[in-house]
């Protein structure tokens, strides 16, 4: 069989299936999924978003609660300092007569 005869034979008796009309659209959807979101895709993405937001909220609660647990101890230490100061200050504790005018005025 000569080359030209073989080419003719193949051309006459075989063909390539045509591309689906939506092929480019399908390719483009895969190239740019964000730009071609449908309504359902929108809700699906919202679902993902809400899951993410919930995760962040839980993390914030955990962090914040730990922070609050530290506050009382700091506050207690501060109050203890004030208490110590007040207890040691002679102005409030001395019964020295020089302050007797306080009692006199009462």
């Amino acid at each position: 069989m000569k080359d030209n005869e073989l080419k003719d034979f193949l051309n006459k008796n075989s063909s390539v299936p045509r591309a689906p009309e939506t092929q480019w659209t399908q390719i483009q959807k895969k190239i740019e999924p964000a730009k071609t979101l449908g309504v359902m895709d929108y809700f699906t993405s919202l679902k993902g978003l809400s899951l993410g937001a919930s995760g962040v909220a839980i993390a914030l609660v955990v962090i914040f609660s730990n922070y609050n647990q530290q506050l009382p101890s700091q506050e207690l230490a501060r109050l203890k300092k004030v208490d110590t100061f007040l207890a040691s200050d002679s102005y409030f504790s001395d019964s020295d007569p020089q302050y007797s005018w306080v009692g006199d005025n009462l």
Partner: peptide
């Protein structure tokens, strides 16, 4: 094979 459609898509996606 009829898989040609998938393979063409894959080719253009890889090229992109």
């Amino acid at each position: 094979s009829s898989d040609v459609d998938d393979l063409v898509q894959e080719t253009f996606l890889r090229a992109w």
